[in-house]
Structures are given as C-alpha cells and as structure tokens.
C-alpha cells in the first residue's frame, strides 16, 4: 500500500553522524543492565527519521518498557499479547489505509511488529505467516536472545544446539539443547517475502541500513536481529556487544539479506575466528569446552559450518547469475 511516498526512498546509512539524534526511547525502563534487545530496539528506531508505530509482543522488551504509568516509548506503541504482534500490526496497517482512503489520515506511519524469538519462532509463527502471506506493508522484527528470558531462560526453538537453558539443562543424558535452531529466515523467505535480513546489534550500520531498506519496501519485511542476553547466556553485562560481534566473526550468526529471493552476505567473514572465541565468553556453553563433551562441540561446529555454507552457496550462485 502506497501510503507514504517518503518511506519508499531508501537511503543506506553512510555515517553515524547522519543518524537521527532525537531519542525514540526514554530511559528509566527496567531492562537489565547491558540488555542486548534494548540496544536492538534503540538502533532500529534511531535509524528512521519518521516515527513508526511499534506493536510489541509480550516479552522482555515489552514488560520492561511499559510498567504503568511509565512508558519508555517515544513512538506510538501498543502491546496486546504474546503470539499476535503480526496480526495486531496487520490490523493497524489495514486501518491506516482505510482511514487514508476516507481522507481522515494524512500520512500512514511505518508499522513495526516487534517480538522476541519465542514470540516469533514458536508461539507467534502462525500470525507471522498469515501477515507475510497477506502482504501487509510492515516490518516484523525478531530480537533473538535464543530462549524465553522473561520467564527465566527456558529453551525455545531458536535456542542453539548444545546450549544450556533451564529446560535444556546439562546432565549425563543431555548435552544441553539436543535440537538445532529453527531456520526462521528460510521459513520467511519461503513466503516470497520481498525483503528479509539478519542483523546483529554489534554491526549497527548494517542493521540500520537493513531497517531503512525494509521500511522502504511496499510489502511485508522481516529482520532477524541477534540480541545477546547477559543474564540468560551467562556473561558479563559489559560484553553484550562483544558477544554479538563474535557471533558474526565466528560465522555463528551470519549477516545476510534476501531481497526478492536473492541472497547476499552483507558482512563477509573470510577468515572466521574459532568458534571457541564465541562460546568461551558464555556460561551457557561452558560445558562444551570440557573434554567429555568434545563430540557435542564437534557437532555444533559442523552445524555452524553447514549453515554458513548453505547461505554462502545461495549467495554465490546468485552472484554468478
């Protein structure tokens, strides 16, 4: 829907100095010190000159920013439930269009649905799929901290293989989480979504450029943001950005985009650091570095390599065409 022509002009972020300096989030929220998801939210919102409508799913970002009567949001914001941010955002987008047609709304705002990995990979997957299929003009952001952190670090289908959580504990029989992380990007891309990308809070320029590109699309878009949780992953609050950076540099979390089906790696990692550099910062993987779990570590390494190869192959094939 062509509600706001200004939005259709995509400008990549060239310099940190061009970023909007008017704060979109107020301090005083109750997120933990060093919260990765809050960094993601700030970077996303600062990257835009216009104020989007944000529809939050239930989760860490939602509860910590909205304790009545305190709201940290300096953009129009609403929370309804856990599993339906994509559906609520669909309604907002359709309503804006109806009001615009009736001449009661001057300009449509960008709509951002914001959910964690639980609200996206698990309980919100159906609503997300529906919204993608219907083609609403909205950006769906998944801030991925790889478990249900708000309820106390329970595993989700985004939790990586081998990771400790409170429902994938490490024991004689269990290696931490026994299943591999769901390929949410693959699911989204399979919908024919015009633009989907991964991003990391450590690579702000890449992230902000992707937000701008997503918002400029005339249809549904998806951003999968890696947002470490120091409480859940068991690392020092000061290391949030460093952990996110190492996830990229070890190829654990590849940064790429898929524009109209075309894959492109936006942050190439020619010489990956050893995976241990990423794992060793985090308590949730500490068991993997013990000799008795060397097989599990080997398996995780092969999962990481396979994931990278798959994306790399998709990107290379299309580069040749």
């Amino acid at each position: 829907m062509e509600g706001n022509s200004k939005l259709s002009q995509f400008q990549p972020v060239k310099s940190i100095f061009e970023i909007n300096r008017e704060e979109r989030m107020a301090p005083g929220h109750r997120a933990c010190a060093g919260c990765g998801p809050m960094i993601a939210v700030r970077q996303i919102l600062q990257s835009l000159d216009v104020k989007p409508v944000v529809i939050s799913a239930t989760g860490c970002v939602e509860v910590t920013t909205s304790t009545y009567p305190d709201s940290a949001w300096l953009v129009p914001w609403a929370h309804v439930a856990f599993e339906n941010s994509a559906a609520v955002a669909s309604g907002v987008e359709a309503a804006m269009h109806a009001l615009k047609v009736r001449g009661e709304l001057k300009e449509e705002r960008p709509v951002i649905a914001l959910a964690g990995d639980g609200g996206t990979f698990d309980i919100g997957l159906q609503a997300l799929s529906g919204a993608l299929e219907r083609g609403h003009r909205m950006l769906y952001v998944c801030y991925d901290n790889e478990a249900y952190m708000n309820t106390g670090i329970q595993r989700s289908s985004a939790t990586p293989f081998g990771a400790w959580t409170t429902t994938s504990p490490v024991g004689k029989e269990w290696p931490g989480k026994a299943e591999i992380k769901k390929d949410i990007m693959g699911i989204v891309v399979a919908h024919g979504t015009p633009y989907a990308a991964t991003a990391s809070i450590s690579h702000w320029k890449d992230l902000m450029t992707k937000v701008r590109k997503a918002v400029s699309q005339n249809g549904p878009t998806f951003l999968h943001v890696y947002a470490p949780c120091n409480r859940g992953w068991r690392f020092e609050p000061k290391d949030t950005v460093e952990v996110a950076k190492r996830a990229v540099e070890t190829r654990f979390f590849p940064l790429y985009e898929v524009e109209n089906g075309r894959y492109r790696i936006t942050v190439p990692v020619a010489k990956p650091r050893p995976l241990e550099d990423f794992l060793s910062l985090q308590g949730r993987f500490s068991h993997l570095l013990k000799p008795e779990n060397s097989e599990t570590l080997k398996e995780l390494k092969s999962i990481v390599e396979e994931r990278w190869s798959k994306i790399n192959a998709a990107a290379s094939v299309q580069a040749q065409v």
Partner: peptide, 28 residues
C-alpha cells in the same frame, strides 16, 4: 464495502487485527 477486508489465518488473529485497527482509531 468501502473499508478494508483482511482475511486472517485464524480467529485469534481476527480479533487481534480488530484490536490493532481500533487502536489506530478505526471502526472494526
């Protein structure tokens, strides 16, 4: 019918979308 018709994928999303629409000031 001059409004928007959104054929959602479930009743849960039907009411969710109506809530979003009403939050935007529309008649849902």
């Amino acid at each position: 019918f001059t409004g928007q018709f959104v054929p959602v994928e479930s009743e849960h999303s039907a009411m969710s979308a109506c809530i979003g629409g009403a939050l935007a000031g529309a008649r849902a």
